[in-house]
């Protein structure tokens, strides 16, 4: 199954790659005319932190795969660079028109609520704003587990140290909750909707307790922030809230498809056993042949003396 899926994924990526190459050569982004009345539409959504965060969520979901994390068009498929002066010279209305209608491999997003498209436009514009990481503020995040009344809850608290040296809560900060997966650096989001800290810098979410943990049901829960004003921060805590998974890991078992260190015992014994038996017999015969030679020498000696 895994093999099949890998082949399919590889094939799909391969096709996408070839296709992208073809398209890039074929058109290399011909001018995309926008009707004047569309270009004249004004962005009704103000450039706020909430709008940027919502825009980022949507960008990560719909745009990042092709346009790349930084919007430079360096994703899986060759696509427009969203940070060039030419791109930024367009009106918000013109960008909205393009997102709404799409062209070629760029799909149209007419089914999404208009407000979300404006959020994305705000976010895309923010991508080209240069921000020195020294300008970013430090925030700390901590994670608490509440297991009361049969309801399991995660609480994250975000705090910062203000100019006076006091630790104060950060309100309105989006917190992502995830669990560490078995794959390196893999994180599985465990709370689907966006959650923001309250005025106490706290956010509490209900934990989905159907997640499968390790052999003892242990999960590594990660709470993290990624914000435009603050440096990224995250905290990882272990909790035994997962469904125990006592199943042996195939990676630690002997099997036919494994490397030599994990040869099945039956195979090891039967192969080396028969190989040894055959070669010992050959050696035995070789010794007999040597005896024939010794007997011949002895006989010739007898004859000569």
């Amino acid at each position: 199954m895994k093999m099949k899926r890998n082949i399919l994924v590889t094939a799909a990526l391969g096709v996408a790659f070839l296709y992208s190459g073809l398209l890039a050569n074929a058109q290399d982004f011909a001018p995309w005319p926008v009707p004047d009345e569309a270009a004249a539409v004004e962005n009704p959504v103000a450039l706020t932190k909430e709008s940027l965060q919502a825009g980022k969520s949507l960008f990560d979901l719909q745009c990042k795969a092709c346009h790349g994390e930084s919007g430079k068009g360096d994703g899986l498929i060759k696509s427009a660079n969203l940070t060039t002066p030419e791109f930024l010279a367009q009106t918000d209305g013109a960008i909205h028109y393009k997102i709404y209608h799409g062209r070629g491999v760029m799909p149209g997003f007419s089914t999404l609520p208009d407000e979300q498209l404006w959020d994305v436009i705000n976010y895309v514009r923010s991508l080209s704003m240069v921000r020195d990481s020294a300008d970013l503020k430090d925030a700390t995040i901590s994670l608490y587990f509440n297991d009361a009344e049969g309801q399991r809850e995660l609480t994250a608290k975000v705090e910062e140290t203000n100019a006076e040296g006091e630790v104060v809560p950060v309100a309105g900060m989006k917190v992502n909750f995830a669990v560490q997966t078995h794959f390196v650096l893999g994180q599985l989001p465990v709370v689907p909707a966006d959650h923001y800290t309250n005025e106490n810098g706290m956010v509490t979410v209900v934990f989905n307790d159907t997640l499968i943990g390790d052999g003892e049901g242990m999960l590594q829960v990660v709470a993290s922030i990624q914000d435009m004003e603050y440096k990224p921060a995250q905290v990882t805590e272990a909790v035994g809230w997962g469904v125990p998974n006592p199943q042996d890991y195939w990676t630690e078992r002997r099997a036919l498809w494994k490397n030599n260190d994990y040869v099945p015992i039956w195979l090891l014994i039967s192969f080396t056993g028969s190989a040894l038996a055959i070669w010992l017999t050959i050696v035995y015969v070789a010794l007999l042949v040597r005896k024939i030679k010794l007997e011949g020498d002895r006989y010739e000696n007898d004859v000569n003396t």
Partner: peptide
């Protein structure tokens, strides 16, 4: 020829090696 002179002992050794090989070759 390994100094073969067809002595009893040489025949005995040869016969034994041959029967061992004839049987060994089958499974191989």
């Amino acid at each position: 020829s390994l100094g073969w002179h067809g002595t009893q002992e040489q025949w005995r050794l040869l016969r034994r090696s041959m029967i061992v090989m004839i049987i060994l070759i089958l499974p191989v």
